[in-house]
Design a protein around this nucleic acid. Structure first.
Length: 888
RNA sequence: GGGCGUUUAGCUCAGCUGGGAGAGCGCCACCCUUACAAGGUGGAUGUCGGGGGUUCAAACCCCUCAACGCCCACCA
């Protein structure tokens, strides 16, 4: 079947088009880097979705922004590379597979053993791990799949080992007994950043602590009475007159009757609580610090699963929550509980497990980030890397200016195992990139690797490097590390500025001396129509795959792009998607109109002396749009870019230029048809190019019918740019006047309820000679567009017809004689209203001009502009007033 | 407790370094006019959160109050 003669349906069907083009782009290698007309490369590293992830609106937005950018830069002549990947997501993947195995085999990971369990995870990954990738493809993303990187692949693993060993040997990675956030569900330490504080109802319990060899008792307030088994001191503020004299004495902890010293520490707030603090260095971050200052013993009272251990006496084996209840009961019994006050306070929860985290002291690996953080801060301060919008710097700085050393070890099995080895014979500890064959010190072959794995963000932090082959020389060569690093832009959400952006900045800069990206675009978070987060519990989630099925990927993409600028949220109303789907249908139908006329079109744009004013005007307008779209896309203003094109295609191209073409195609003037068809074709091709980054499928589909045989696919074609040869300011002005007058006539028709079929006579009165001439030469178009049967053009001084309806612009009066048809009073009212409105407009400017201070202090051009506006409204006002006088 | 942000038409939001308040959707009226009813033409709608200040001029700059949202912070 011949494409060009095939009847197109009135409504486009996205599904077929989408299915058709993705494989063609792939086959054509369009997603691969290619030298363009510009020298620079343009690289984006995709934030890798979790391997366990399901596509959600956040991904859709993230991917859309990146794809718009990459397609725009590709068409603009940069050598583009967009690297996709998937994250191994240590905790969540391990949890998913653990659950699955338990459901299917009733076995725990411990039943299987580490090796077998990890093998199971790999099997799971092979089977289900590419689901998210398939889903991403439906959006139409044009990344280079040959670069696809899984964060547990060989090269990333190598990069992690290399980075670790270097940091270790520099003394930046150290092992320490330190208080960390312990997740009792994961049974692993987690980093500070992975703790979320949530409001929880609790209570202050006021406890009685006896002072040894004294009648005095101390009143201690706590929300966690069950931790008293771990108390190793009681602290007061040394300046507190109430308790000063007790410092150095001994207090007796209730229940366990342990004797501890009463110490003085500045940390204790005299105003807060009772001014008297129980110190539990093993299970409280502050107390840990106090303990260090005073050399206190650390007592661990918890097991790894968060239950009390043998130090908990009779409460051993209970969870903290249960133990708390029992302890309170017991204290009440013993009359050691003074009172209880209910309180709502913030309690840390594990980001993944959603369980209360327990501060606990354990041996963990830490990365000293102090110096790296300084470098990362400096990179932004000196604008080596820029945030868009700039305000997100604050979030970045707030984290990096007071960095805490990063706890990088996790007690999991799925992840990059820490490359530290312990010699069983000489007790030597060392870090090694590759699996060693013997202890470097004593040559013993009896050694063990540290069982812990690294925090997932440790490997993510190296993603811009290892996706491009680092540190493997061959891989770097093959992946052209030198050409594509540093990358151009990072596109991501503000929720992972700490987790990911900061860490990439620190680590990548550390190992290469170069910042990983020139620019960082932070987009908003997709929320529902009412601005609420999309969540399972609210049931307000919108599934991108359902949207794609219902409206098409293009419509979804355009909607997301139109909503993305410098905002922090994108409240998605499904009705908007429908609106943009309709817009795409409009483009489709514009093509349906043009298509039959294309037989007349020349291969290239006609020479300027053959252009009509309409041609010059539309080419100028197109030029303006191309300019603003480019500017917007370099500033990540997807909203401005998409609305500029939308406006142009809908209101300028379809509503006017196509309408103005109908008269020509209905005429017998073959030459005019050739010119018009050629310009239409040129414009429409440019429009498709402008739209392509946003709505790639439909544009590629239509391009197929418009491209010359030797031309590439649209994805590989050229993005429109401002062309100073196609600027026709005079024609733009004339056309704007013409449009204003036609709108006025239509307005008049509506005011007397004329049907489209009813044709009218119109008399135009104008002293603007240029406009009069323009109007005369465009009279045929005026007739069609305003549905006029006959018209006259006269000077303003000539006599106006009686019994007419009238409208005025600043340069033209429009009269429609309508004897018998009009209600005189209605028309008078209408004109009076118009006069009032115009008077108001005029007054605004006139008042300014009356103000001497304005005339003297405002810039000359502002004054001149104001004068001109005032004159225009004055003219319109005079016309309206004269005409009203005529009526009466 | 600290920080950031938001408040503009019924809804979702633009509004760049101060110079006549905008868009989309929705709404109203009339229309199946030969690309498109997922359409056409025309129309209505706002004390730009409140109060003060700077300025010839404030949605925009400064101060202040209020409401809402987010992030960070040691669970007395």
């Amino acid at each position: 079947m011949n494409e060009t003669t095939q009847e197109l349906t009135k409504v486009f069907s996205p599904a077929e088009i989408e299915k058709k083009w993705y494989p063609i782009w792939m086959e054509n290698k369009s997603f691969k880097p290619k030298k363009g007309k510009k020298k620079e490369t343009f690289t984006i590293i995709m934030p890798p979705p979790n391997v366990t992830g399901k596509l959600h609106m956040g991904h859709a937005l993230d991917q859309t922004c990146q794809d718009v950018l990459i397609r725009h830069r590709r068409m603009s002549g940069y050598e583009t590379l967009w690297v996709p990947g998937v994250d191994h997501a240590g905790i969540s993947t391990q949890a998913v597979v653990e659950k699955k195995i338990y459901q299917e085999e009733k076995k725990t990971k411990h039943d299987l053993g580490r090796e077998a369990f990890v093998k199971k995870i790999w099997e799971w990954k092979e089977q289900f791990g590419s689901e998210i990738t398939h889903q991403l493809k439906k959006i139409g993303i044009s990344c280079d799949w040959d670069y696809f990187t899984f964060t547990m692949d060989d090269v990333p693993n190598q990069s992690v080992r290399k980075a670790f060993v270097q940091l270790y040997n520099e003394g930046l990675i150290y092992q320490a007994d330190y208080i960390v956030n312990w997740d009792p569900i994961l049974q692993s330490a987690i980093s500070d950043a992975e703790v979320e504080h949530k409001e929880v109802k609790g209570a202050y319990y006021f406890l009685k602590y006896k002072v040894k060899d004294s009648d005095e008792t101390l009143e201690v307030a706590t929300t966690r009475p069950e931790t008293l088994f771990g108390d190793t001191a009681v602290a007061v503020n040394p300046a507190d007159e109430r308790f000063k004299h007790l410092i150095g004495k001994t207090a007796i902890i209730p229940l366990c009757e342990r004797e501890v010293t009463i110490i003085g520490d500045e940390h204790v707030d005299i105003e807060k609580g009772t001014g008297c603090l129980k110190v539990t260095p093993g299970h409280d971050f502050n107390d840990f610090e106090i303990g260090k200052r005073h050399n206190l013993k650390i007592l661990n009272i918890l097991n790894k699963d968060g239950t009390l251990n043998e130090n908990g006496m009779e409460f051993q084996g209970l969870t903290c929550a249960k133990a708390r209840k029992k302890v309170v009961e017991k204290l009440t019994e013993l009359n050691l509980l003074i009172k209880t006050e209910e309180v709502v306070h913030q309690v840390g929860h594990g980001q993944r497990s959603d369980e209360i985290v327990e501060p606990m002291v354990s041996k963990q690996w830490f990365l000293n980030v102090q110096d790296m953080a300084k470098v990362a801060v400096e990179a932004i301060e000196s604008e080596k890397t820029k945030f868009f919008p700039k305000t997100w710097e604050n979030t970045y700085f707030s984290w990096l200016r007071e960095p805490k050393n990063w706890c990088i070890s996790r007690q999991l099995w799925w992840g990059h195992q820490i490359p530290v080895y312990y010699c069983g014979d000489c007790k030597n500890t060392w870090a090694n990139e590759d699996k060693p064959s013997s202890c470097p010190k004593c040559k013993s072959t009896s050694f063990e690797q540290d069982p812990d794995v690294l925090d997932t963000w440790f490997s993510s932090g190296l993603f811009p490097l290892n996706t491009l082959g680092w540190p493997n020389k061959e891989a770097m060569e093959e992946k052209r590390f030198k050409d594509f690093y540093p990358t151009a832009t990072l596109v991501t959400g503000f929720d992972i500025i700490f987790f990911w952006v900061a860490r990439m900045m620190m680590m990548c800069t550390k190992f290469t001396g170069k910042v990983p990206f020139d620019q960082i675009y932070i987009h908003g978070i997709v929320r529902d129509k009412q601005g609420r987060k999309m969540s399972k519990s609210l049931g307000n989630g919108i599934d991108p795959l359902e949207l794609i099925e219902k409206y098409g990927a293009d419509a979804m993409r355009f909607t997301l792009a139109a909503g993305s600028g410098y905002n922090r949220g994108l409240n998605l109303d499904p009705e908007r998607i429908e609106g943009y789907r309709n817009f795409i249908n409009k483009v489709w139908n514009a093509f349906r109109f043009i298509q039959p006329h294309l037989v007349h079109a020349q291969e290239t744009l006609p020479s300027p002396n053959e252009f009509t004013v309409h041609d010059k005007w539309i080419l100028s307008e197109l030029n303006t749009v191309a300019k603003s779209v480019n500017e917007s896309l370099y500033e990540y203003r997807f909203d401005d870019a998409s609305s500029a094109i939308y406006q142009f295609v809908y209101e300028v191209f379809c509503s006017w230029y196509i309408e103005l073409s109908k008269n020509i195609f209905n005429s017998e003037n073959d030459n005019a048809k050739v010119i018009r068809a050629s310009v239409l074709k040129y414009c429409f091709r440019e429009i498709l190019a402008l739209l392509h980054p946003f709505i790639p499928y439909i544009t590629e589909e239509l391009w197929e019918s418009l491209k010359k045989p030797n031309e590439p696919l649209l994805i590989d074609w050229t993005f429109p740019e401002f062309n100073d040869k196609l600027v026709y300011t005079r024609e733009q002005e004339s056309m704007n006047k013409f449009i204003e007058v036609i709108t006025s006539v239509r307005n008049l028709r509506a005011s007397v309820n004329l049907k489209p079929k009813d044709e009218i006579n119109v008399e135009f009165f104008t002293d603007d000679a240029m406009f009069a001439e323009f109007l005369y030469s465009n009279r045929a178009f005026m007739k069609d567009l305003a549905r006029i049967s006959a018209g006259k053009i006269r000077n303003k001084s000539e006599a106006k017809p009686k019994k007419s309806v009238m409208a005025a612009t600043s340069f033209c009066e429009i009269f429609v004689p309508l004897e018998g048809l009009i209600n005189l009073q209605e028309q008078i009212t209408r004109i009076e209203k118009e006069i009032a409105k115009t008077q108001k407009d005029y007054d605004i400017y006139d008042r300014k001009l009356q103000n001497e201070k304005f005339v003297n202090s405002a810039p000359a051009e502002v004054v001149a502009e104001t004068k001109q506006k005032a004159n225009e409204f004055k003219e319109k006002l005079v016309s309206l007033q004269e005409s009203l006088a005529n009526f009466q």
